[in-house]
Structure formats: structure tokens, C-alpha cells
Write a protein that binds this DNA or RNA. Structure first.
Lengths: 316, 316
DNA sequence: TTGTATGCGTTATCAT
DNA sequence: ATGATAACGCATACAA
């Protein structure tokens, strides 16, 4: 048995003729090693878990695609789990993965409380967090974040450069971390430009088109002078544009609009949407590779920031 | 050990007091059974594989969400694999799943040849095919298909009922099975209505907005009289609408447009897109439940057809 | 280079 | 009701 095992796994200690014979025979009988039995003894399953709030959201679908492609290259398999934004399901996901002896977890936009999250992370070999910070670094964990503060700054800077001065922000959900970081960037950039920041010009909303429509209508009613709006994401931005049209304002002539995330819709909608772009597929691949590095015990940074770029199209 | 095993799995043959003690202790030490060791002996891993061409495509993302939700309910985990439309990757996916002793596979839009597909399917306990037919039924397999022929008929019928008579079809990729079935429905419905079917009014294209734009421009150049176009999918339909606008035709006043798949974009784009709708999340759930039934040896139909419904909005 | 004993964490089976 | 033994399919450690 051991000779066969060595031959098949291309390990040393087998004569070349024997190896050939065994491999030919294995091929003939269509033998494939049982990976789960293999995992039981080696404690390495070549399997990782990917937890997302909702795979239906293109943002996570793209990350998932990047993770899966990179995993495929390195002969890893990935368990996909949706949490539906429910913390209980997130915990159930973590527990179920833990029971499977997987090599690591990529956890996107965790909704768990710090304490709970930290204790769960410690149960795994390695964990990569996407879009979530940790109070203090953990040796087996790493956090990948999009630099939302910079993103907002890039957007506002572009508005200012194109002579827009009365700038609003439709900020998405109030409790969203991205939203807070962008608001921070928004304010800092306006302050730098010595353009007065006006709290009246910020509105929160649900992160979809309907929410953007409502919030922009509200903003434009309060301050009809607005000549630019930065939106929480592209769906919100579309709602903002629709609100502008409904109020008789032309985009971009009367009012400029910038979105975020650069989903495929941005290039389809008319006018094409200027948006903050990050290569999400690449982030997925980065997450997977970092995870395997972590698991291999290589030292890695505890946090990686990804800078967005502004893709300038027609809307602003 | 066996007493503990029985107690924890709630199997008979343990006194109630013993069971309580064991369970309490297990809780205290945060014990969780190792599912992979469990799978090794029981030959049941509570794991299935889901193979899709591209999770980034909302069509598959929605199915995946349905599969995953249903799997979660029944305490199953799902391996997600993207094939990128490459047959070699599809085979690699099948092999890697097979090595993991999973309980079944859900395979979407397989690009494999009949013979190869059949031989691969037979290696598994159970396989559910989505959007792919088999030459003859297999005992461990089941096929779920969208009734594209009916879908096309519904669209054309609606055009006819709303007094459109010069109807074109932007058919997507020529080799697509969906495209062929829809063309069949398109022709049959026009024949029934004794409206002459004109081969000039069919054009093929890549299944995206740019393709739809090109194909519709071609169609409208050949036959400027066209007053309705049925599109391969919603992205194509958006391209069609953009082509209409570019040629100075108003939608829906001058020309009506119907898409297919009813992706979220349909409700965002202006005018809102009339589209064929199928509950993809539900198909995913159906696929999972059918798969587990198959695996349990229950007899199931060898093929399930899902009828689309026409969601009438503004474009046609 | 080849082969044997042992154990991974669990359950099936048979004995007490 | 409880416990001992073997087995699932492999790889590690050691012996020949």
C-alpha cells in the first residue's frame, strides 16, 4: 500500500519501473485518492470557506469569483455560505466550517461583534477578513479593506476640479462602516478646499435605487442649489440620477453624480456613471493567497488597504 | 466512546441521565463532532457540489443563492466551482468533487458532450442538471429546464395582442440551446397567428448589451418597419433599446421591446423593461431538494420544466 | 526500495 | 445500557 501511495503522490523512495507500473494501473482502474480520508490523517483538507452576506450582490459575486479562480489554480476547493446578513447564520456558518477541518476562512463584511468575532477566528488556522476591522491584530488573521476614505476624497476632488462647489452626499445606511469612512473623507476634502461643509447636504438611505431616489429628492428639496452628489454606491447613484431627472435637472449639465463600486450597470445606464472602481476579482485572489500564506505560517501584514480609482464617465 | 457518540447524536440505547451528563460535558468542552471523520465511516458527507459557468452572472448567482439557502436548512454544505465556460475546467471540477465523496452535484449549463457528461454523471450518487438535457434519462440524474419555447410564445403573443405585427428576434449566440428553443417558439407563434415569419428579422449576437445594440441596428437597418423586438436576455434588450433610441425610435411608442430573465436591471432601466420572469432562487431550492431526494433513492421525474411568466412593464 | 504497524475521529457491530 | 473491537482510506514512522 505504501509503495502505491508513494508512487501516486510522486514521493521519493520508489523505483522508476515500479512507479510507472503503479501509475499505469491506477489510471486503468480510474483510481483517485479519497481526499477526505487523506485530510483526516494529514490535517490538511485543501478546502477553505467563503462567507458572504449575499452572493446575489454583484460586489460579493465578483470577490467570490476571484477567490474561486485563485483556489482552483492552487487546487483548493471552496465552501460558499450566505449569511443573509443574519448574525445567527454567520455563526452557524462558522461552526459548520469549523467542524469540517478546513484550512481557512474568508469572511466578508462580518456583522458579528468584536468579541464574538475574535473568539471564532481563533478556532481556525487562518482567517481573512474583508471589509471589517479588528480591534487588535490577531496572529492568524488579516484584514483587507477598501480605502473608502480615499475614495470619497477622490470623488470630491474631481467635483472641485470640475468647478462644482455645492456638493451633497447620499450616504447609504447610517451604521455602515463604509459610509462612515466615506463621510470622513467627504468632510476632510471639503475642509481642505475651504469649502464649507454643510450637514444639510448629507442624507442616509437604504443602499438601493429607491433609497437613492428618496434621499436625493430630500436633499434637492432642502437645497436646490446643489450641483454635485456623491452616492454610497452605483445603485444609489442611479436613484439619484432619476431623482434629478424627475426634478428637471440634467445630469451632468446641471448636476454631477458619482457612484461607487463600479458595477456593470455603470456602463449600461445613460448617462454612463462615473464611479469609484476597485478590482474585486483581484481582491478575492489576494484574499485567497494571503489566507494560504497565513496558514503556512508565513508572516503577513495584519491589514491591507486597497485604494480605489475614479473611473470618469459621463455623469460627473 | 460509543455511549458518548450515541448520546450526542441522540440515538437510542443510552439512559436519560447518562445522556444529560454527556451532553452537558460536551457543551462545556465545546466539543463538535468532526464531520469529515464522520463522513469517512458513514459515507455521507452532507456536502454537495454546485458547478456554474460564472457566479458573477446574476442568473447563476440567484440559483446559487437558492441552492445554498435550501442546503443550509437541511444542514448541507456546498462547494462552489466556476468553470469559466471551459470544458476542461468543468471536468476538473467534476473530478475534484468526486474525490471528495460528496453526496451529489448540481451542474448548471454543462458544456460537455453527451457521452462525456453521461459517464461523469454515473460516478456520482446523484446529479441535477440545470439548463441541459440528456439524450436518455439516467436513474441517478434529473434535469431542470426553463421552458424557453413557451417563454418566446408568451412574448410574441403579447406583441400580437398589443397590435404589433412586424416582430424581430435578437437571438443571442447561435449555438445556445435556449436561443434555439426560443426561435422555435417565436416561429410557431407567428405561424399560429398567420403572420408571416421572415428570416430577415432574426439576428444573432453575443449575449450582452453591446451585442444587442449591434444586432438591433442591423435588424432595423434591414427592416425599418419593425415595431417590436424580442431579445435573448435583458442585457441584450437594453442594447436593443439603445439602438432604437440611436435611430430615433421611441420605446415603446414606435417599437416595443421584451427581454428575458428579468434581472434587477429590468426595473432600473428607463423605460422599465418588460421581461420573462422565472423564480431562479426557487429553481435553486428545487434543484437541491430534488438532488437529496434522488440521493435518498426516492423516485423522481427525470425532467422538470419551469414555465416563465411575462412581467409586463413599460417597454412593451 | 519495499513493506508493516499504527493512528487520524468517528460509527457499526458484536459482546457483556 | 454500556463497552470493546474493527473499520472507513489514507499517510507517518519505522523495520526489513
Amino acid at each position: 500500500m505504501m509503495t502505491a501511495s508513494r508512487a501516486i503522490n510522486n514521493k521519493p523512495g520508489v523505483s522508476e519501473t515500479m512507479r510507472q507500473d503503479i501509475q499505469r494501473l491506477a489510471e486503468e482502474m480510474r483510481y483517485r485518492p479519497n481526499l477526505i480520508a487523506q485530510g483526516l490523517v494529514t490535517r490538511q483538507t485543501f478546502t477553505i470557506g467563503l462567507i458572504v452576506p449575499d452572493i446575489t450582490n454583484p460586489f460579493f459575486a465578483q470577490i467570490a469569483r476571484g477567490v474561486e479562480d485563485a483556489a482552483f489554480e492552487r487546487h483548493y476547493s471552496v465552501f460558499l455560505i450566505n449569511t443573509a446578513e443574519e448574525p445567527e447564520r454567520e455563526i452557524a456558518a462558522l461552526v459548520s466550517l469549523w467542524q469540517k477541518d478546513i484550512d481557512g476562512v474568508i469572511l466578508c463584511s462580518s456583522r458579528l461583534q468584536d468579541e464574538q468575532l475574535v473568539s471564532r477566528i481563533q478556532e481556525f488556522q487562518a482567517v481573512v477578513l474583508i471589509n471589517r476591522e479588528l480591534p487588535q491584530p490577531l496572529p492568524n488573521s488579516l484584514s483587507i479593506q477598501i480605502n473608502d476614505r480615499l475614495g470619497a476624497q477622490l470623488a470630491i476632488r474631481h467635483f472641485l476640479e470640475t468647478r462644482r462647489s455645492k456638493i451633497g452626499f447620499v450616504a447609504g445606511p447610517r451604521q455602515s462602516l463604509s459610509s462612515q469612512k466615506r463621510l470622513d473623507g467627504f468632510r476632510s476634502e471639503l475642509a481642505d478646499a475651504t469649502v464649507s461643509d454643510n450637514p444639510q447636504r448629507v442624507a442616509y438611505c437604504t443602499p438601493n435605487t429607491a433609497g437613492g431616489f428618496r434621499a436625493a429628492t430630500e436633499l434637492l428639496t432642502r437645497d436646490p442649489e446643489l450641483d454635485a452628489i456623491f452616492a454610497f454606491n452605483d445603485l444609489v447613484a442611479v436613484g439619484v440620477m432619476q431623482a434629478c431627472q424627475a426634478l428637471g435637472k440634467r445630469v451632468p449639465e446641471d448636476i454631477a453624480v458619482i457612484g461607487a463600486d463600479d458595477i456593470p450597470l455603470a456602463e449600461i445606464i445613460r448617462p454612463n456613471l462615473t464611479s469609484l472602481h476597485v478590482d474585486l476579482t483581484n481582491i478575492g485572489a489576494l484574499a485567497l493567497n494571503s489566507l494560504l500564506n497565513l496558514g503556512a505560517g508565513n508572516k503577513t501584514p495584519s491589514s491591507i488597504q486597497i485604494d480605489p480609482r475614479l473611473y470618469i464617465r459621463e455623469s460627473g
